[in-house]
Structures are given as C-alpha cells and as structure tokens.
Design a protein around this nucleic acid. Structure first.
Lengths: 196, 196
DNA sequence: CAGAATGTAGAACGATCGTTCTATTTGTGA
DNA sequence: TCACAAATAGAACGATCGTTCTACATTCTG
C-alpha cells in the first residue's frame, strides 16, 4: 500500500475522499436523469449524504460541479474507447466496436439521451465552462472517428466523419424521444452503410 | 352553473388580445434562446411589458405557457409545410422542399438547435404536458414524411423515414454544437442519398 | 347603458435557489 | 503524539422562484 513518492516532488495525488466520490456519483446520476437546472444542490447533498460545508469545500459552486459531471461523462467514454483499443488495432474493427458501443447505450436501461446534448440545451452561452466541456468531448470524438476512418482508407473520410457523428447524435435523440430499439436498428443500419 | 351554449355551438373565437400576443411572442423568443428553466416568469413579464396579473389571467401557470410555446413552434412548422404543399402535389418535390426547409433553418441567424429536443432535455418525465406536446410534433413530422415517402414509391419507406428523421435531429444538434454550414452540407448530402 | 372581460399597478406570499458561516468532531500523516 | 485536513451539523444569508391578492382603469359587447 506504499504509494509513497518518497523522492518525487509531486504535489501528492491525494486520496479521492469517499465523500467526494459519493458527491460526484450522486450528481452524475441526478443531473443525467433529471436535468441540471431541475436538480438543486440540496438534492445532491442530501442524496449523497454529505453536508453543505463538505460540498463547498470540494467545489467553489454548482457550476463547477456541473462541469465536473460533464468531464466525468467524457472520461468514461474515453476510457471505453481505450478499452476497445486494447482488443484490436485494426481501424475498421475499432470503428465497428465504437458503433456497437453507441448502439448498446441506446437501448440501455435508464437511457435519457446524450448527456452532452442535454447539458448544452441548458447552457445557451457557447463560452460557458459547461459548453466548453461539452465541446471538448465532441472534438475528441470527432477527431477519433476521423483518424480511424482515414486509417481505414475510407474514400471520403471527412464527410463520413460528419455523417457518423450526425447519426450518433440523431440516434441518441431518437432513442430518447422515440422507440429505443427502432433507433438502435436505424442507427446500426445507417452507420454500416457509411462503410461502403 | 348552466353553461348552456344557447344556440351557437361555436365557443366564440375571441380576439387574440394584444397583451397575450406580446406575452406569447416574448416567451417564445426567450425560451428558445435561453432555455425554459433559465428564463423566469418575471423576465417574460417585464420584457413583454405586461403585468403579473395579466399573465396569470391568460395562463394558470408557467408550465402552461411552456406547453403553449411548444405548440406554437409545432404550429409554425405545420404552417410552413402547408405552405409548401400549395406549390406542388408531387411527393418527391414536397420531400425535397421539406428537406430544404430544414437545411435553411440550420444556418439561420439565432439558431439554437431544435426547440423540441431542447425542451425535452429539460423535462425528464415523458408523461409531462411539455413532453406530450413535443411528442405530438414528432409524431406529426414522422407520419408526414412516411406518407410522402410511400407516395413517392420509395422501396423502403419505413427505414427511410426513420433515417430522415434521425438526420434531421442530428443535423440540428450538429448545427447547434458545431459548424452550422458544415452541418447543412452534411445534412443535405445525406438526405439526398436517402432518395436513391 | 349596463356589465362582463381585460389590462394596469404594485404589494406580498411561502418555497426554494445557491451560498456563507460558526462550531465541533473525525481521521490521517508526520 | 501532535497537528492539520476533512467531514459533520445546523443556522442563516439575500436573491429569486412561481404564485396570489387587492384595487382601479380600460375596452368591448349584449
């Protein structure tokens, strides 16, 4: 258990703190399921079983918690992509796995649309910290898809990237506001047609 | 309590009332541009230059105003479709005109995404009045597209409908969170490929 | 003309929002 | 063991939320 950096001048990684993790997990669950502005700090605090003081010790304000929530969602998807990348290096197979991952999420229980799209809908200012966090994710996803399509030798990687991202967005909206299984089928079929 | 409508079965059309129109127009502008929960009744009231009493004379509460806002957006798009339908009866041309209408909106000034998707993001309960109003629009749009595709003799009208709706949703998200002109091009190109 | 409906003006309600504060207790590392 | 950071507990802040109310003026209608 000695993670002692004895020599390292590193500013000490600091333990995640159980209360902070509860706070983050609860905020993520509530913000996604009910919306950001709908859920107040009191809700998060009481359900995470922490106190107001503890909350404000970890975050300067609510917006910071929202930003962290968005970043966590982004982090989770990047981690999933990294996990996939450990199974194969073939760009075509990687793309197929990413598409499959999106499709699976569409029909997962508790799915309430894309967390980034939903969060952005509540933050009109494109320069707000929340919107910038959303952008960070979208830029990452887009560039990842673009690189894979190029590596796979797609004849028109730029258009294919834009289309694939658009199908992902539309698929999530369709799964949220319509029949998830239909959305899944439509997404999979249209995404497959992009590679042709 | 005899609300007996003596002779006329018509509930009297009633004049639109200037104050009510100002209220509705202001609410529409603010709700779309800044979000529903972000904008309070006081904002709407002051910018519409009416009084609280007037507001609550026309609407039982804020949610009713939100529902009316969604319905107005739906009504505007139906009116636009009706307008298009007066130019031609050819289903293929009608579809092309609808697609063109969507594309134009993507690059219009002040565009902040799909009002229905954005509103739905703020109302988690699928049975809420707002969500039902959103559904009404989406059901109408979907069935309209489906009928036109069938009439145009599309080989796979069901899938084409789902795909076209998905592209419309994704296109609006892309235009909101990305480059609108790129979204427009991608949407037009992909929508065109549906008819082939 | 009478009278209902509509609009204006402004005070006030309780509830909740996000935030700050003081005081005390727990836990951990040096 | 000492000291410092983290968490607990609970009161309290001003601001804003959506809503209700009374009192008076306007306008349209039967």
């Amino acid at each position: 258990m000695s993670d002692a950096p004895s020599t390292g001048p590193a500013p000490a990684p600091r333990k995640p703190s159980a209360a902070r993790e509860r706070l983050l997990a609860t905020a993520g669950r509530l913000f996604y399921a009910e919306g950001v502005h709908t859920v107040g700090v009191d809700r998060v605090i009481s359900e995470a079983q922490i106190t107001r003081a503890t909350f404000y010790r970890h975050f300067p304000g609510k917006e910071d918690l929202v930003v962290e929530y968005v970043r966590e969602q982004d982090l989770a998807l990047r981690a999933q992509a990294t996990e996939i990348a450990e199974t194969t290096t073939d760009p075509t197979q990687l793309l197929a796995a990413i598409v499959e991952g999106v499709a699976q999420r569409l029909t997962s229980t508790g799915f309430r649309g894309c967390p980034f799209i939903n969060a952005a809908a509540e933050y009109p200012d494109p320069m707000s910290r929340v919107r910038r966090a959303v952008d960070e994710h979208r830029v990452w996803f887009r560039s990842t898809v673009a690189e894979l399509l190029t590596a796979a030798g797609h004849p028109d990687p730029e258009y294919a990237t834009d289309l694939l991202v658009m199908l992902r967005d539309g698929g999530q909206v369709a799964a949220y506001l319509g029949d998830p299984s239909v959305a899944r089928t439509t997404f999979l079929r249209s995404a497959a047609s992009v590679f042709a």
